[in-house]
Write a protein that binds this DNA or RNA. Structure first.
Lengths: 121, 121
DNA sequence: CCGATGGTTCGATGTTCGTCAAACTATTTT
DNA sequence: AAAATAGTTTGACGAACATCGAACCATCGG
């Protein structure tokens, strides 16, 4: 079963200590994440591309310019929120700078092979 | 690149000869199938369940009762069409009886590990 | 303290999509 | 030929969703 606190699925020390503010943007416990929700999240061209670009697990800034998508920043923000709430990413907040990170180890354990299969071709 | 005829991606002898009418319901060439389309097709609860139940590659009838979904037959028909046009299944037509079949070998070659990852849990 | 910066949230808009009922097509049975 | 059966297609409707602009919030640098 899942834990009470949605943000406590990982020990705090798993997260780079310089990113101290992540608890403002809770992430669902991976045990509660349903496959259908992950699929819905990834069944959008922009979000799929985002996931592919962060597949290595390295944090990437949210800044609109680094992605180069032809959408407004509010739209991009919406996509990041969708990915977080679906359980795919976490937000690493450090001052004004926000990063996103794929929850790769958890995802690989919960849905073996899924992320890998999104990277082909 | 893909072949001209959308229904010619497989040699006819690959299909059970008793199902002779499949050419009325063309299937996209697997080389033309985009990951995003497969994901969209599978990002629906009913269609995901269908794919999981035919994952073994065995043909299954379309008949509403065999599936037990709480939708009208026109809705089910729509889902089958969506899956076919997205490249996931083919239709095997034999008189009044229609079967669907997952294009498993082709899918596994085009998107390694994807179908498998949908079956976990 | 003030402006600039990086990002979120809200409300509105247009599009996509799942669903149904009804009409239709094709095949089999009587 | 007529009725029954199996499935498709069409049109309508509502819900979900991607998008935008504007307002908002927080942080950093003068």
């Amino acid at each position: 079963m899942a834990e009470e606190n949605a943000a406590s699925s990982e020990h705090p020390s798993d997260v780079d200590p310089e990113h101290w503010n992540a608890e403002n943007y809770p992430v669902p416990d991976m045990a509660d994440v349903q496959l259908i929700d992950v699929l819905r999240a990834v069944a959008d061209p922009i979000r799929l591309e985002i996931v592919r670009r962060i597949a290595d697990g390295k944090p990437q800034p949210k800044s609109r310019d680094t992605w180069g998508f032809d959408v407004q920043k509010s739209t991009l923000s919406h996509h990041f929120k969708t990915l977080r709430e679906a359980g795919l990413i976490r937000w690493l907040v450090n001052g004004r700078q926000h990063d996103i990170q794929l929850r790769r180890p958890e995802l690989d354990e919960r849905f073996p092979g899924l992320i890998d299969s999104l990277l082909a071709d």
